[in-house]
């Protein structure tokens, strides 16, 4: 069991010093994420879900407690190219084609030319953007841009994919479609995914494990292991099982006084 855990956080604390006094972004967060898990982090703004993801990515550093990624410190894990990160905004470079954008991490990491092209072909297929490689970002819809940014995160074949509200800016129909695609991608690549969201149905539909968080201080109020099967058609969302889990998430959010204000 020990060697199959990808992320292990123990009593993690992170306090930002601001002019209005300290802000406890994370307090006593203990969590284990196993290989192949699809873990969603849900909670209102300021609950620390994004901060936790950024700590895993070594974009923020904890002020207390410990965290390992693949058994290493987050900084070491980053140097080992342990994870791909997807931001809320696709953030594609307007001066690069879709292929060029996906090539960016490969260039920086010094992949050989031939391998770069092979990897780009592979991930373009994964996100179903074959044939769009030569387009510029502005020629693609918002959903397609976000898929291209996922392809960019997958290009160097990290086992861990960290996604910070990747579909937050998209409309519901596109979002459903991308959720379905993401599940398919997860099923076919066996990656571990950490996924931040505001949406209860999205979290329940996608995850094997749902982490419910609440703000001030940012902490975990409930961790729900999903009982849904790995194969999930979209209409699974109408089953009693699904609704029961969604109910428990909602209860968890309420228990954390998440929506007091």
């Amino acid at each position: 069991m020990r060697n199959s855990s990808v992320i292990e956080a123990k009593d993690l604390n992170l306090t930002f010093e601001t002019n209005d006094g300290p802000v406890h972004a994370l307090k006593g967060v203990t969590l284990t994420i196993d290989k192949g898990d699809f873990v969603s982090f849900i909670g209102p703004s300021g609950c620390g879900k994004t901060t936790f993801l950024r700590v895993v990515a070594a974009l923020e550093h904890p002020t207390g407690g410990s965290i390992t990624v693949n058994g290493m410190t987050p900084d070491e894990a980053r140097r080992q190219r342990a994870y791909g990160y997807v931001f809320q905004a696709a953030g594609l470079y307007p001066w690069r084609t879709i292929r060029g954008n996906i090539r960016l991490p490969l260039e920086i990491m010094g992949f050989p030319k031939a391998e770069q092209e092979a990897q780009i072909d592979r991930v373009l297929d994964l996100v179903e953007l074959r044939g769009f490689g030569k387009k510029y970002p502005w020629q693609l819809s918002g959903g397609m841009q976000q898929r291209a940014s996922i392809a960019r995160a997958l290009a160097f074949d990290a086992d861990l994919l960290l996604m910070d509200e990747p579909f937050g800016a998209l409309d519901e129909i596109v979002r459903d479609h991308l959720n379905e695609q993401l599940l398919h991608l997860w099923g076919s690549t066996n990656k571990t995914i950490g996924f931040v969201t505001h949406s209860i149905p999205e979290a329940v539909y996608l995850s094997t494990k749902i982490v419910v968080m609440s703000p001030r201080p940012g902490r975990i109020t409930d961790v729900i292991e999903s009982t849904l099967p790995r194969e999930r058609p979209l209409d699974i969302r109408d089953t009693p099982e699904f609704l029961e889990i969604a109910h428990r998430v909602r209860e968890g959010l309420r228990a954390g006084h998440a929506y007091d204000d």
Binding site: A57, A58, L59, R78, R79, R81, Y83, G84, Y85, F87, Q88, A89, G91, Y93, W95, L104, P105, E107, I108, M109
Partner: peptide, 23 residues
């Protein structure tokens, strides 16, 4: 976000300059 993205690739100052800042 764009700078953070390059940090996740462990990109140095040089790569950040040539690939992001200059363009």
């Amino acid at each position: 976000d764009q700078l953070d993205l390059l940090r996740t690739y462990n990109a140095g100052t040089g790569a950040t300059f040539w690939k992001l800042r200059l363009p």
